[in-house]
Design a binder for these strands. Structure first.
Lengths: 191, 191
DNA sequence: GAAAAAAGTTGAACTTGTTCAACACTCTTA
DNA sequence: TAAGAGTGTTGAACAAGTTCAACTTTTTTC
């Protein structure tokens, strides 16, 4: 069954009765995304939440100076959305792009909002997931302010070995908040 | 009533029945914190969540090099905790210190966890608050990577005018991720 | 109200990271 | 299979931000 990965992921966060889990998952539909295709484009309003079955995505924004800023990467077993645009129904400042041919499970915003009301476990699930995500962002901001680019690079490599092997150095640099030229120089130093 | 501010803050996020709100709030107890006193010290496990009634707090960590990194400031109407330590019951990497004589309302972790189970509205409240906080952290990380120190400084001044008037330049610098000497030079440039 | 401590300022030398331009390399894709 | 686009590397000049030390001003404390 194609939704096994999703179910496992959910149960890692909160307990669900078999029937509640089945019902919740029934609202997700599968979608294939080709390499380089966009799931969400800056300016659009985000009307879905996604869960990655396979492949890899990059979530990034482009600032006024034209520089790309990668917020995060999402591979298998990660969740995917622009939560700012999703919650406030405002134009997204983020792009979500597939870095390779990928499969996702999507749930529509209106379905998710309805499930909050009818299924207490769904409310709990996203409370727990949001709090865990919050912790991750806080840790990242601390790293970003207290570590040098070189330290951040090595931390990224060891924290996400699967991701670092999939994405290009340019993209890693934009995640770290440095230029790709400088990353290239850092890698040389290492040896 | 001393809990009016808390009630208003809650109702800004989600609807509560009068009785549910009354019950939830009954678990909060008031505490006075003297200037410079710590509500939480790095290494301790966080067993409470707090809501600021008056005064001002700084939430910061000290890294291996001995540098302070300010994660955020909390004044009246803000929430207060180390969510990482609270959720995982791991030693906190954060310090929470009063910058002036302050009043907070605290709720114990065990009470909060129990309320998640008995009051669906509490679950929803923290789901919504966590998601809003998540949005704020994402925005901050984008700023931190795409703006210069000078731009970040002005953004901070305009986003939190009440806070910037209360805290010292050293503390603002540690929030911005720069040295206080450099901030002093930035301020000079402005004129 | 004096002494001590903390906060802010300035300058010079230094380190970290950027910019721009040139070149080599590897994929696509026609 | 040639062309083109994207990726990685390198160097030189430059800009952003740090470090350390000295000094002034403000705030705290006894």
């Amino acid at each position: 069954m194609t939704k096994d990965l999703l179910k496992k992921n959910i149960l890692k966060n909160v307990p669900f009765s078999k029937s509640a889990l089945e019902e919740f998952c029934s609202y997700f539909y599968e979608k294939s995304i080709h390499k380089k295709a966009f799931v969400l484009v800056q300016g659009e309003v985000c009307k879905f939440e996604g869960f990655v079955l396979s492949g890899c995505f990059r979530i990034f924004s482009i600032d006024k100076k034209g520089n790309e800023n990668t917020l995060y990467f999402a591979t298998k077993d990660w969740w995917l959305m622009d939560i700012d645009s999703f919650m406030n129904q405002s134009p997204s400042v983020l792009n979500i792009q597939a870095l390779e041919d990928s499969q996702v499970l999507l749930i529509d915003r209106k379905d998710k909002l309805a499930l909050y009301e009818t299924q207490p476990a769904v409310e709990k699930l996203f409370r727990v997931m949001s709090q865990k995500a919050l912790i991750a962002w806080q840790r990242r901001l601390i790293s970003s302010n207290s570590l040098t680019a070189k330290e951040r690079y090595h931390k990224f490599l060891t924290t996400y070995p699967d991701i670092s092997s999939k994405v290009s150095d340019r993209q890693i640099a934009s995640y770290l908040g440095i230029t790709h030229e400088f990353l290239s120089k850092l890698k040389k130093q290492k040896k």
